[in-house]
Structure formats: structure tokens, C-alpha cells
């Protein structure tokens, strides 16, 4: 069995009286692309925030890169953050900094590498996401697709083994979305980066997903590959994959 970089076991979560997650268990295998999907309000963002350790009270039910998220103090959490990349839906690039400065930021803050080498690494990562000429541009000067690519370059600047993506395809046209998927696939194949992607784009899921985790009614309704999802027992899963 493949090594799991992320392990969620019987996770529960509620907001006030409203129970969002009842009993969620799944794994993200090393070297694969796992897609997490479900209807709005099904708890995808809640799971992602748990995986990123963004809640104050972390349950002892999640491990990321071998670390139990509930047992991490601030220093260990910081160390873990350096081993993972996060891609936010709207890019979340800092508007007052150029693309180059945005991507260089984690290296400047967390390593002692000289500026010359940092610039070389930033140009390499921009080249890998096909944004060679965007080093000195500001985020406001980029198109939607370019913004996503720049955000991906920032997520992989530290060569992390694991990258979380929150709806990377949201708002992109099919052609740009396909090229973003190609990029994710090439990063997965070339660098061996493991991806956990939250997305609703069926075409994208078909292209990139090694494994699908479908959330419904606070539980994992389906876990498996694309073809198996089409024949899943759960009606909601079947409907999603067959009616789109």
C-alpha cells in the first residue's frame, strides 16, 4: 500500500448546533493527486482548514506528513508549513509586491539563501509555470489564469512534497483550466509533488484525479477513482458524475 501523506480518521466538526462533519475518514497517498469534492456546505473548506491547522482546537484525528496536527506546538507547526504549499482560490498574492517578490517571500523569510540564488529559483519556478516574463509585474497586471499560475509558483517555491489547492479552476475558461491541469500534472510527475485539490470542475477531475473523495451528509460518500465514481452506490455521487 502507498504511503499516506495525509490521514484523516473519524473527523467530526460542528459550528454551534450545526454538525458539518460527522465521521470523515480518508487518506492522501504520496505521489498522487487526490480530489476532495462535495456540495456547497458539505465541509470541504472545514477539512482543508483542519489539515492546515487553522483552527485553535485541532482534534487528534489528522496527521499531515507524519505529524499529528493536534499535538503540534507553534514551532512544529511552522516547520510543517515549510514542507507544504498552499494554493488559494483567488491566488492570495500580496498586491503591493511584484510577482517575483511574492514568490521569493517564503525563501527570504525562512532560509539564509542569498538573494542572487533566490532570484534564480524564482525565475526557475516562473519558467516552470510558463510565466517567464512576469517577474516584475504586479498581481493587478496579471490575467486570471496568470494569477493562478503565479500562485502555484509561490506554492512550490520551497519544493514541498505536498500542495493543497483550494478550487484552483474557479473562474477560469475551459482552455485556461486545461492548461492549469496540465501544469499540475507535470508538477506531479516531474517533481513528485502530492496534491490535495478541492474542486468542482468535472473535466478537471477527469483529467487529473488519481483518487476522488466525495463528501455528502457530513461523511465520505465515496472514495476511489473516476470510473468507479460513475458507478458508485451513493445516488448523489452517481448523479454528479453522470449528469455533468
Amino acid at each position: 500500500m502507498d504511503e499516506a501523506l495525509v490521514n484523516v480518521a473519524h473527523l467530526e466538526a460542528s459550528f454551534g448546533d450545526h454538525k458539518v462533519l460527522e465521521d470523515v475518514s480518508f487518506t492522501v497517498e504520496k505521489g498522487g493527486i487526490t480530489v476532495l469534492l462535495g456540495a456547497s456546505g458539505s465541509g470541504k473548506t472545514t477539512i482543508l482548514k483542519h489539515l492546515l491547522g487553522l483552527y485553535d482546537n485541532q482534534p487528534d484525528k489528522i496527521s499531515v506528513l507524519g505529524q499529528d496536527m493536534g499535538q503540534l506546538d507553534e514551532d512544529l507547526k511552522k516547520e510543517l508549513y515549510l514542507k507544504m504549499g498552499v494554493f488559494y482560490q483567488n491566488g492570495a498574492l500580496i498586491s503591493s509586491m511584484t510577482v517575483g517578490e511574492n514568490i521569493a517571500l517564503p525563501l527570504q523569510q525562512h532560509t539564509k539563501i542569498s538573494e542572487k540564488i533566490i532570484e534564480r529559483m524564482v525565475r526557475l519556478k516562473l519558467h516552470m509555470v510558463n510565466l517567464d516574463d512576469s517577474f516584475d509585474l504586479y498581481p493587478s497586471e496579471l490575467s486570471g489564469g496568470m494569477l493562478k499560475r503565479a500562485a502555484l509558483a509561490r506554492a512550490i517555491i520551497m519544493d514541498p512534497p505536498l500542495v493543497f489547492c483550494d478550487e484552483p479552476g474557479a473562474g477560469l475558461d475551459p482552455v485556461t483550466l486545461a492548461s492549469l491541469d496540465e501544469l499540475i500534472l507535470s508538477l506531479n510527475h516531474q517533481l513528485g509533488i502530492t496534491f490535495l485539490i478541492v474542486t468542482h470542475e468535472l473535466a478537471s477531475i477527469q483529467r487529473i484525479a488519481d483518487k476522488i473523495v466525495f463528501l455528502a451528509d457530513g461523511k465520505v460518500a465515496f472514495e476511489g477513482d473516476f470510473n468507479a465514481a460513475k458507478k458508485a452506490e451513493h445516488q448523489g455521487v452517481r448523479d454528479f458524475f453522470n449528469t455533468h
Binding site: L107, T111, I113, I117, R120, M121, L124, K125, D159
Partner: peptide, 11 residues
């Protein structure tokens, strides 16, 4: 061997 090391060697 990661990207930082390769770029450092080139530098």
C-alpha cells in the same frame, strides 16, 4: 537534490 541546490550550483 532540489531546485535550490541546482540553482545554487549554477550560481
Amino acid at each position: 537534490l532540489d531546485s535550490s541546490a541546482v540553482q545554487m550550483l549554477l550560481q
